[in-house]
Write a protein that binds this DNA or RNA. Sequence first.
DNA 1: TGTCCATGATCAA
DNA 2: TGATCCTGGACAT
Length: 276
Amino acid sequence: MPEGHIIHRLADTVSERFGGHLVASSSPQGRFREEATRLDGRRLGRAEAYGKHLLVGFAGLPERVHVHMGLAGRFTFGDGRAPEPSGVIRWRMTDRKSYADLRGPAACELFTPEQVAALVERLGPDPLRADAEPERGWTRLHRSKKSVASLLMDQRIVAGVGNIFRAEVLFRHRIDPMLEGRALARPEWDALWSDLGELMRRALAARRIDTVLPEHLPEAMGRPPRVDRHGGEVYVYRRDGQRCYVCGSVIATELVEGRNLFFCPKCQRARRRRVS
DNA sequence: TGTCCATGATCAA
DNA sequence: TGATCCTGGACAT
């Protein structure tokens, strides 16, 4: 269940394991069989990530494999010979030294160069990419009447942000999630963008999402540490019902556009125009 | 064994 | 806005 940093990690792993190697491709499940046949035995070039999208290139093939993990997608890597396929494996790659199995992706397909270009054009700037242009995100956000919470989940505004980073970055800047996009000041956007880059780079390196400043850590406050299932120390994500590390209020949750939003009703109370 | 839920996104209405 | 898709893990029964 990936946010952007996981996909970047995935791209690195695929490149490291298979880059420049002759790779056998198959689709034990069958839904990627025709395409896997075309890839089978080709030399893998490079894998790269744009937001939550993974693109894998092969020598001599103009198309690239486009993978979107959705909520359920999962890659597993292993050394040595691949075991007998178990479960539903959409795409299996193997070389002499290792294997990779992809299960449950929302998308696994071949993209033409035109489709890749359209995808990149549609996506907003990705804080983890050196070529990101944050101005494009601001342009799409700053006139919107939609809530900042909703806009931050919109991949056309910032590519790669998911439910955890959204909740955490809004808390770190004490921004009311229901604040209208058009009420957000430019310096606030700049700060959000820069912080997202920082948080996501750290998560990519540490393989877990930590957002809490040292002075707010439970240990520093005389409480036992608590690490959520997602594997990091956070301010609000899935901490509903528990006390805010900063003000002690009870963290709240609310369903916004079908997703659980977490926030501190006191620290993040807006004094400006909110979405009703 | 069954049900719900998830770091996501699309489609129809 | 709601239904739907993808899969597996947590939890209840």
